[in-house]
Design a protein around this nucleic acid. Structure first.
Lengths: 141, 141
DNA sequence: GTAGGAGCTAGACCGCGCTCTAGGTCAAGT
DNA sequence: ACTTGACCTAGAGCGCGGTCTAGCTCCTAC
């Protein structure tokens, strides 16, 4: 019962089987994947946990290259925890910066949405405010 | 004094001159850029405002293709404000979703950082918790 | 008059992160 | 026997968002 096929792992993680093989080739797996006698991959639950971690890294913008570096540290075993910590902290900062940036963008977008909403609601959509020269602050089209 | 060269716009927006020409080719500029008699581009402050808006769109993950669609709506002039509003709202949702996702990632990363921090602080970095089989919840390396 | 620097166009190229293809093995079902 | 389907490897291809090159025209300063 223990031991998952690549298809099962794909289903569980949301990664494609292609992506799973690709990640393995790229050295993103902490433990070498076991194989059945016929060469098929056998994944453990730990592999799935690790992949889910990688997915969190990826979807927060960590490049594959950095994930690989982290993976290598882990593979080397105990003794480099400070390095891992540094890498993680640096990514943490990066994610925070991203969130901040996105919030700024969201403010601008929301400001624009509100303006459009007002005009659409008021049925004044066809007024002159669209033309740059008549605007007060900026090209707000 | 009014009228900016491509280099000045690059400096002001942070985009490269290459990127500015590329954006223009891709149809991301609301107004056609004026040219001097010798063919050089002359940008207005409104162009810069528009570009800064595009930059906000881009850095919040809007694809160039969508920016182009928005630009086309604006170029068509008054009458399609509801369409523009829909596009903006949809992007607004997308940005909110991104922020949420990043916050989730940040939680996971922070959890990991804290664990490492504790162990590094305690000087117990070399203990067994690194090995998957000894862990309680997941492969937390 | 000539060297530098900024600009122009058209189009090739690049890095990233997958994704897909070709050509094959293997095991189970009918 | 044969089809189906999941898996394998090696390697090509792709979409996106730029970036860079080649070869040119200007203008300015020396």
């Amino acid at each position: 019962m223990d031991g998952l096929s690549i298809g099962q792992v794909a289903e569980r993680t949301g990664l494609s089987v292609h992506a799973l093989r690709f990640y393995e080739r790229e050295g993103l797996l902490a433990d070498a994947v076991r194989r059945e006698s016929n060469g098929r991959r056998v994944y453990t639950e730990d592999d799935v946990d690790w992949l889910n971690m990688c997915i969190k890294f990826r979807s927060s913008g960590m490049p594959l290259d950095t994930i690989r570096k982290y993976t290598e540290l882990v593979r080397k075993g105990a003794g480099n925890e400070a390095d891992r910590l540094a890498l993680l902290k640096s990514h943490q900062d990066y994610v925070r910066a991203q969130i901040e940036e996105l919030n700024e963008c969201l403010n601008v977008i929301t400001w624009k949405v509100d303006i459009y909403q007002q005009h659409v609601d008021a049925g004044t959509a066809d007024c002159l405010w669209v033309a740059p020269s008549t605007q007060t602050a900026s090209e707000a089209s």
